Amino acid sequence: MKFQKCRTSREIITALNKSWHPDHFVCLKCDNPISGSTFNERDGSPICSDCFLQYFSEICASCKKPIKGKIIKALGQTWHEDHFVCGGPCMKPMSGESFYERDGKPYCKEDFENIFAAKCKGCEKPISDKAIVALEAKWHKDCFKCKACKEPITANTFAVEDNQPLCTSCA
């Protein structure tokens, strides 16, 4: 926005490739004169910062308030940068991080696995890779061990005692 004097000794504002008298350089929405050096534009008309924020700013998916600063676009929504956080207990910032999605919320890998992944019957930790399915449960490969000798069972056949696997040697 540039100010200069016109022939009638009034100031002229040059903005948006037009010239305006200051009292005619008004907000498209509230019709109040725009007096500061900052304003916004919509369809070639000036809009004061307050009206732009109220009527045209993106709304944060978390707090439902207009976003003034940096916008995060993820999961089909917009977020304040500091509101785009893990939906799990860690609540760490997810901006610029890879994440998992569940029910419209971002999750870090650790929280996603702890909350949603199947748990190993042997160690009860989340299974994030291939699992052995046996005895109506899922197991990490290294956790599927013989009840007697405690060695991992790698053969396709095994025996069962008290709903626990036994290798063919110990059976």
Rank of each mutant, 00 (worst) to 15 (best):
M1W: 07
M1K: 13
F3R: 15
K5M: 14
E11I: 13
A15T: 00
L16R: 02
P22V: 09
D23L: 11
H24Q: 13
F25K: 01
K29N: 09
T38S: 13
N40M: 13
E41C: 12
S45R: 12
S45C: 13
I47S: 06
S49E: 15
C51W: 01
Y55A: 11
F56D: 12
C60L: 00
A61L: 07
G76A: 08
G76H: 03
Q77P: 04
Q77T: 04
Q77A: 10
T78G: 07
W79V: 01
E81W: 02
D82G: 00
D82M: 05
F84W: 06
G87L: 03
C90H: 03
S98A: 06
F99R: 00
E101H: 04
E101Y: 02
R102C: 09
D103Q: 06
K109E: 13
F112C: 08
F116Y: 14
K121V: 07
G122A: 12
K125H: 10
K125P: 05
K130S: 13
E136K: 14
E136I: 06
A137T: 05
W139P: 00
W139G: 02
K145E: 11
C146L: 05
E151R: 14
P152H: 11
A155S: 14
A155C: 08
N156H: 11
E161H: 08
N163H: 10
P165Q: 04
C167N: 02
S169H: 09
C170A: 08
C170P: 07
